[in-house]
Amino acid sequence: MLELKDVDTAYGPVPMLRAVTMSVQPGELVCLLGPNGAGKTTTFMTVCGVVRAQRGRVEVMGRDLASLGTENLAALGVGLVPEGRRLFPSLTVQENLRLGYDAVSGRGPDFEPQLDKMCHLFPRIRERLRQVAGTLSGGEQAMVALARALIGEPRLVIMDEPSLGLSPKLIDEYFEITKEVHRRGTTILLIEQNAEMGLGIADRGYVLVKGRVAQEGPARELLSSKAARSLYL
């Protein structure tokens, strides 16, 4: 569903990713780990098409991202959860969710059933639907950002540092919901710094260090590997 093949990227003259090769297969939950400055968010921006690969190839759903365009990802079945939530703060929760739905399905009669599904998955959302998103707590905004990505029933969800800024209790709740989303059949790329939580729910993992994939393998092996832990802790 997602594949990077020998990808290099840079911000101006500064190289960021170097020969990164990784994949996410249908039905997997893959965790991309790394310390601050490793290139995790650059990877997110690259697979979204915001940062273009200088070398190599990015494929989404079997199609070349360079010719696909970022604006077509949602319609292709890709949901995005960017770092920092990126909600529209002056719009209500329901309006933010509607925008996520419209990006995939257009204005149609199926929004209300999808909204109801999100309210069941995220019980806090139902009582906040008419509240302006900018007045929500950080944890509530995180839930709305994930719901916005899921409301169009994507086949692949890419999440960038979702636990950032959340309390331990909210992190536990967020990852339980992520596990449930995966259990229901959604493929997930989880870009995360919290190794214990990320690898704890993942099938496979990659460790990114200074823009390169330093280690990869089954999540349980990475979680117990002293060599891997020394790279991201």
Rank of each mutant, 00 (worst) to 15 (best):
S163Q: 12
L166D: 08
L166I: 12
S167Q: 13
S167G: 04
P168Y: 10
K169G: 09
K169N: 13
K169D: 11
K169H: 13
L170R: 06
L170F: 10
L170K: 06
I171H: 03
I171L: 08
I171F: 07
D172P: 00
D172F: 09
D172N: 13
D172H: 14
E173Q: 14
Y174I: 14
Y174Q: 13
Y174P: 00
F175V: 11
F175L: 12
E176F: 10
E176K: 13
I177Q: 03
I177M: 07
T178C: 13
T178D: 02
K179Y: 01
K179F: 03
K179M: 12
V181Y: 02
H182F: 01
H182T: 01
R183W: 01
R183I: 00
R183A: 15
G185K: 09
G185V: 07
G185N: 08
G185T: 08
T186Y: 02
T187W: 07
T187M: 08
I188Q: 01
I188V: 15
L189W: 07
L189C: 10
L190N: 10
I191F: 10
I191E: 05
E192C: 03
E192W: 04
Q193E: 11
N194W: 03
A195F: 11
A195I: 12
A195P: 12
A195R: 10
E196V: 14
M197S: 14
M197Y: 14
L199R: 08
L199H: 06
L199P: 06
L199E: 07
L199S: 06
L199I: 09
G200W: 13
G200Q: 14
D203C: 13
R204S: 14
R204M: 12
R204H: 15
R204K: 15
G205K: 07
G205N: 11
V207Y: 05
V207E: 09
V207P: 05
V207N: 07
V207K: 10
V209H: 09
V209E: 14
V209I: 14
K210V: 11
K210H: 14
K210E: 15
K210I: 00
K210A: 15
G211T: 02
R212N: 11
R212D: 04
V213P: 01
V213N: 04
V213F: 02
A214V: 04
Q215N: 03
E216R: 12
E216L: 04
G217C: 05
G217Y: 01
P218R: 05
P218L: 04
P218W: 02
A219P: 02
A219S: 09
R220C: 09
R220L: 13
R220Q: 15
E221R: 12
L222K: 02
L223H: 08
L223P: 04
L223V: 03
L223N: 07
L223D: 07
S224H: 14
S224I: 06
K226A: 08
K226S: 04
K226I: 00
K226L: 01
A227H: 00
A227W: 00
A228P: 03
A228K: 00
A228E: 02
R229W: 02
S230L: 00
S230G: 02
S230N: 03
L231F: 01
L231I: 00
Y232F: 10
Y232V: 07
L233M: 13
L233I: 10
L233G: 02
L233Y: 11
